[in-house]
């Protein structure tokens, strides 16, 4: 079951139960008092959650933000957003000032593995829970929620290798930004698989810096030189729109297998898979990630022993492979506008 329909069902069921309960049972007699929910509410209400993304304005961060709000706002939690707008230094400054402002929880989307590491440690020392999302840092905090990039690299590459069977066995890799953790880990996954498949030759492995235009330029050149290319491993669907455009322009759509990954927003993922631009898009399903974060935060805030810095755990996201087969199915992708609406934005 895809997440969206899951939630819809859950919502409907909850509503039904509530309606039934209010009209029926509780009206009749006094029930048993659940001993923990009051404390749970008290623990959550009035707490502040601060979110520091790399930048707002793209499907991932907007989705997380909306998802968190949707889950936690009803409990009276307050939200702070610090948007550094791709500026690492401004981000560090935002985290620094949050440490002094002491929100209950910080949700951090790291630009790289190091920049915030010291600050996050300081934050937990100061009694703030730190939840890291998708891009981890060198510091292990209370929780990490996010995709397993190595797995993404491996699964994408496996799909490409499979597609290449009986073909030229030439593949290309379009990396993100070399220094970014996501790109580096994905590359590790790619090489893990390639190590098992010596028959595959990598004709090009270049960084396009998360830039669609650059990805297009690189792919164009590669395709001109290797028209018999059988597959491309892309590192992010937002960038691989350019890769796909190059493939399409060369008239090789369907002949070159393009595997990539992304947040699974329907316009950026399902629609493009449907048109054949991507052959495989591994989605780490942002709403689910948001829900997982929200669950973790609820647990952290209401737990009695999990002091900041005392517990450390990870929740790796279960990936949803989007292919032509399921691209049309409801719930494979999600819709940012609807999610925002549900979050009341």
């Amino acid at each position: 079951m895809t997440s969206l329909s899951k939630w819809t069902c859950a919502g409907l069921m909850a509503a039904g139960i509530a309606a039934a309960a209010s009209s029926g049972v509780f009206a009749a007699e006094q029930g048993l008092n659940e001993p923990f929910q009051a404390k749970f509410r008290a623990d959550l209400s009035g707490k502040t959650i601060a979110f520091v993304p790399v930048a707002m304005g793209f499907d991932l961060t907007e989705g997380w933000w909306a998802g968190l709000k949707k889950e936690l706002k009803p409990y009276g939690i307050k939200f702070e957003l610090r948007d550094p707008n791709w500026n690492t230094n401004a981000g560090a400054q935002a985290v620094t000032s949050l440490v002094t402002e002491k929100p209950a929880v910080m949700v951090i989307h790291n630009p790289d593995v190091q920049t915030y590491a010291k600050l996050l440690k300081r934050a937990e020392d100061a009694g703030i829970y730190v939840v890291q999302i998708n891009m981890g840092s060198a510091y292990r905090s209370s929780a990490f929620v996010g995709a397993n990039w190595i797995e993404i690299g491996e699964r994408d590459t496996e799909a490409v290798v499979n597609a290449c069977k009986g073909k030229s066995n030439k593949i290309a890799i379009v990396q993100g930004a070399v220094s970014a953790a996501a790109s580096a880990y994905t590359l590790r996954g790619v090489s893990n698989v390639l190590a098992k498949h010596p028959e595959i030759t990598v004709v090009s492995s270049q960084a396009a810096d998360w830039d669609a235009a650059k990805a297009k330029g690189i792919t164009q050149t590669v395709l001109k030189q290797h028209p018999d290319l059988c597959g491309i491993v892309g590192f992010w669907d937002g960038m691989d729109i350019g890769t796909a455009a190059a493939v399409k322009e060369a008239g090789l759509t369907g002949k070159v297998f393009l595997a990539t990954s992304g947040g699974g927003e329907h316009r950026g993922a399902c629609d493009l898979v449907k048109t054949g631009a991507f052959d495989l898009d591994l989605s780490y399903d942002v709403p689910t990630q948001a829900a997982q974060m929200a669950g973790t935060i609820k647990w952290l805030l209401s737990s009695t022993d999990a002091k900041p810095g005392a517990v450390k755990g990870s929740e790796y996201t279960t990936l949803i492979p989007i292919t032509k087969a399921n691209a049309d199915a409801p719930g494979t992708c999600w819709n940012l506008d609807e999610l925002k609406k549900e979050a009341g934005e």
Binding site: A213, K216, G238, E249
Partner: peptide
């Protein structure tokens, strides 16, 4: 040519 407008190109 890339079927989208990556406005982040400004950065």
């Amino acid at each position: 040519s890339v079927n989208s407008m990556p406005t982040r190109i400004f950065n």
